[in-house]
């Protein structure tokens, strides 16, 4: 086990290096450069462009630019092309904004999907099963921002909920209870919108898993032994059906960066997905590349975590 962990850790580190090299090359080789963002400005003389290029090391060969990026990232000196602010604290701040959204959405997804999926599997073909199936497919199929707009209109017109940003502007001096409720209301809709897709996917998956396990021989044996149906369902079937979900947990980790661009954009949530979108728009390469590396680290950590968790949960799996 320890040998496996060490070897796979090294393999994953190499993977990350390759990913960062590729991302760096791709971003820098794409047509257009940060120094050309404003080509029509008459006050931008060729020597200004040259000075900008030199300041950002854009006039150096590609491998040197990569080396500069790694050095600056390692020393924490990496600065945004846009405003010359350090990149890492900014990403950290945006990350802390996205985190509650992600954690809450994950909690909602996991607490709702399992009961829904398992009930649908147990009552296969019933009205409940058919309704949840149709709803799940509809939630997967609806364009996220279309649904978000409909929900926002409903929430504002019917319930009068605040929907934009993280808190009500000017409420900083309000009493604590008001501020807390304000934060919660602002969190509610984006969380729900982020969770919808996940609930639909995960509950379908839970249903499929449960159906497969319920057809297994050992479940039939358990029934044949005369065990009560409840015991068979929850002790024999459910436990085995839940096993693959241990891995899902790790695989959902990268959603923290890439999964919320649209939702954060709609709700003006100053999170990490929106930071990425703004950085891409402004060709802010240091931010784009660092965010990309961060996402890759999350992906790699997620698969690593799911491998280990699976081995811990399933005695049939031995990592060598």
């Amino acid at each position: 086990m320890l040998g496996y962990l060490l070897r796979s850790l090294i393999e994953r580190l190499v993977l990350l290096v390759v990913v960062s090299v590729l991302a760096h090359a791709m971003v820098h080789l794409a047509p257009g450069e940060p120094s050309e963002v404003d080509p029509m400005n008459p006050r931008m003389k060729p020597e200004d462009v040259a000075r900008l290029r030199a300041a950002f090391h854009l006039d150096e060969p590609l491998h040197l630019q990569y080396a500069y990026w790694v050095r600056d990232l390692a020393t924490g000196e990496l600065r945004s092309f846009k405003d010359n602010q350090p990149v890492l604290p900014r990403i950290g701040e945006r990350f802390m904004n996205s985190l509650p959204l992600f954690v809450l959405a994950t909690l909602v997804i996991w607490t709702l999907s399992f009961p829904l999926g398992v009930q649908a599997a147990l009552r296969r073909g019933s009205r409940f099963d058919r309704t949840t199936t149709v709803l799940a497919y509809a939630l997967i199929a609806i364009p996220g921002f279309f649904l978000a707009y409909l929900v926002i209109i409903a929430a504002v017109q019917v319930l009068g909920l605040p929907v934009i940003g993280m808190r009500t502007f000017g409420a900083e001096t309000a009493p604590l209870s008001v501020r807390v409720m304000d934060r919660i209301w602002h969190l509610a809709l984006p969380t729900l919108m982020l969770a919808f897709g996940g609930i639909a996917m995960l509950s379908r998956y839970a249903r499929a898993q449960m159906i497969e396990v319920l057809a297994a021989d050992y479940v039939r044996t358990a029934h044949a032994k005369g065990l009560p149906a409840e015991t068979v369902t929850y002790r024999h079937a459910l436990r085995n059906a839940l096993l693959p979900f241990v891995t899902m947990f790790g695989l959902m980790l990268p959603g923290l960066v890439g999964g919320s661009v649209i939702i954060e954009q709609i709700f003006a949530w100053p999170g990490i997905g929106r930071l990425g979108y703004e950085a891409i728009l402004g060709r802010d390469y240091p931010v784009v590349l660092t965010l990309n590396l961060f996402a890759a680290v999350l992906t790699v950590a997620g698969t690593f975590l799911s491998d280990v968790l699976y081995a811990l949960a399933d005695p049939r799996i031995r990592l060598r």
Binding site: V19, A23, P254, V257, G258, G259, N292, A295, A296, T299
Partner: peptide, 8 residues
Amino acid sequence: LCFPTFFL
């Protein structure tokens, strides 16, 4: 697979 798809 390491690249976040939509971001990429």
